[in-house]
Design a protein around this nucleic acid. Structure first.
Lengths: 169, 169
DNA sequence: TGATAATTGTTATGGACTATATCAAATATC
DNA sequence: GATATTTGATATAGTCCATAACAATTATCA
């Protein structure tokens, strides 16, 4: 992927390109693929998550973990089922995720006094501090880059359309 | 999620809602989550893929399989490495995928005469016919619904922005 | 009240997708 | 012609996602 690859062999740079018999070569045509919204949507999502992970490398937070911390902060006192379901996470899969966050002292499970089956979720002090730093990283590194690429108006329009798809499709 | 839930017990409809001690209840606040582009992007992508699968249920084609057929049709005579890499699929993972498509007689591997290591990929007659039907289903059911939801102009703008993210982010 | 049903967190488990190392056959390089 | 590279393939491990089942607790209601 390095650009320097091009300059490694300047002497033979003009040769006929490998030994292609008669065919075309090199770049493939995407064709209708580049018009398929699902395809482009998936590629864009992977790129955004990839960048998110890079921006959050110092805090070791995945997009899913960040969303849990955000939701628990906004809705303190809710139980696992409520937090998990609004994030689209199945309860069984949420257990290991919370084990991770709890082992890092970012959030805590508290037995509810009203319903002793359920665990109330809250952020620890460290969790609040980490989330604050995470928000700053996301704003200054991640979302800022998107704003730079699209412009604020386009970014808002993109978010609105994606929300519409996510909620009404 | 049914609205009828509200009407199941009209007699006690005014009770204090369960036995909540003093807390708020019911709907959780998404808060900043709904402003996170990555979060909304992921939710939208899941919805679009879900709808795609429903539209393609009669042909039993996943988004990934559809993209392979589209790319092979547009670029006949390419080998596995070329097709896989332009789709972002790792070669080892592409093997089972091709095994599936080949077992269904949708595409075929042909030993290249130029380079006997590589397998040239082509669509079978059945593969071409299935792809034609798949394109119609996608156009009339899937993309049509998106056009209906967003409008053609917005859909085009959305595609353009997602492409920009996918390519330049 | 007491029997039954439902809910909560949890474990176990399987499937789908992704990522890396490795291999034999074939080809490229020098 | 010796060495390195490429291609398709296998094995394997990790991460998500989904379902069934269970104990503890609570809700329902006859």
């Amino acid at each position: 992927m390095t650009v320097s690859k091009t300059f490694e062999k300047p002497a033979e740079a003009i040769k006929v390109r490998k030994d292609a018999p008669e065919g075309t070569s090199e770049a493939l045509q995407l064709g209708e693929l580049s018009e398929q919204l699902g395809y482009v949507l998936k590629r864009a999502q992977l790129k955004v998550f990839e960048n998110f992970l890079r921006c959050m490398a110092s805090l070791q937070l995945t997009p899913a973990q960040f969303s849990v911390l955000l939701l628990v902060e906004k809705n303190p006192g809710r139980n696992q089922t409520e937090i998990a379901s609004t994030l689209g996470i199945l309860r069984p899969n949420f257990v290991a995720m919370l084990d991770n966050l709890e082992s890092r002292d970012l959030c805590a499970r508290i037995r509810s006094t009203n319903d002793r089956r359920s665990h109330i979720l809250v952020l620890t002090d460290k969790g609040k501090a980490v989330l604050t730093r995470a928000k700053k990283l996301v704003a200054t590194k991640h979302e800022a880059r998107l704003n730079e690429l699209l412009g604020p108006a386009n970014r808002a329009a993109l978010l609105a359309m994606l929300s519409k798809i996510a909620n009404e499709f």
